[in-house]
Nucleic acid binder design. Structure first.
Lengths: 182, 182
DNA sequence: TTGTTTGTACAGTTAAAACTGTACGAAAAA
DNA sequence: TTTTTCGTACAGTTTTAACTGTACAAACAA
């Protein structure tokens, strides 16, 4: 096997690993392959470069590069004299992880918190009603306790997100091990 | 509106919020609705109960309850005299989050680490070859430095997973706020 | 043993999403 | 200005995943 083939094979293995795990980012394997391909290029790529390297339509490249950008896995790059949009992989993967974590979970926290607040208010209002049957009163009280549990949980999640966003997570888990024996 | 309708509406809002966010667990909305429905029941449910409550096939209930179980979002319950399988939602959501986090990311870490190790070995072998052209030697060296970066990142991710699994995350982000002002 | 009940494998169908090609607006080049 | 280039919206197609109904094995009951 030629040397350059060996290199390609070694790269391909990594790219495939990325493709198989990119679903954790809510992306489809082909977007992972796109990311992996960009990772091994030492220059930013244009949409046309990607089309050529991956053998997919330019439209696909455009949509998936946008998805990758939204998750901050790739970012735009500039190079003088080049008119086309250029993209390169973000160089701080820890930060990418944190961004992913924030973006994905913050949405969930916000949505749930709003729903919980609204439903809790409705339940409390029900309790004010003196004609509410004892049977239903008990149901409402149980539901309220469940919602309060959810509320505590999402409050924790919110604080967890904060701990990632403001980098305090690195106090608990430093970027590099003290005494690595690798 | 009847009282019980108000209760249903308040519950439905929460269930829908869960359904809309369950994709974070790699599940589809209907599985979220199933989970949400179980959450508001005070007794464990059978597959037939779920079929009735959600108006979906028993086969679907079976497959999605298994998916929910694998993520430790629901667990089997036992009740004397009941032959059918019973399921209820797990009561420690913080732990469910940790389990999710572990299950999902550990796979990724393992897979990537193996790929990186293998490719790194192949690159090192290439470097041993004295006939390797200077041009390719440089490519290999750049790739090696990229793989080492990946390796460090996945090592961090592994330690992060550990910090969740052994509950040290709660040192950084306690389950309950000290002085909560809700 | 034989007859029920229960959960799930499997094949088929329906629904969703990934992907492509065309067409077009915006921006740069001529 | 006109012409060219570039990125993406959109409609249509293909691929994939979700869901259903049937059929059957395992476990229990009679």
């Amino acid at each position: 096997m030629e040397d350059h083939e060996k290199i390609d094979k070694a790269r391909e293995r990594i790219i495939e690993a990325i493709a198989q795990n990119i679903h954790l980012y809510g992306l489809v394997p082909s977007a992972g392959r796109q990311f992996g391909t960009m990772f091994f290029q030492n220059e930013p790529l244009t949409l046309d470069d990607m089309t050529e390297k991956l053998g997919m339509s330019k439209t696909s490249m455009s949509t998936s590069v946008r998805a990758l950008s939204e998750l901050k896995l790739v970012e735009r790059a500039w190079k003088k004299g080049v008119r086309k949009d250029l993209y390169k992989v973000t160089d701080d993967w820890h930060q990418s992880f944190i961004d992913l974590f924030s973006i994905k979970w913050q949405r969930s926290v916000t949505l749930h918190s709003a729903a919980i607040k609204k439903s809790l208010a409705e339940y409390e209002e029900l309790l004010q009603n003196p004609t509410l049957s004892d049977e239903l009163r008990e149901v409402v009280e149980i539901d309220i306790s469940k919602l309060k549990y959810m509320k505590d949980y999402y409050n924790w999640l919110e604080r967890l997100i904060d701990a990632f966003e403001d980098q305090r997570i690195f106090d608990l888990v430093p970027k590099f091990e003290r005494d690595s024996k690798n």
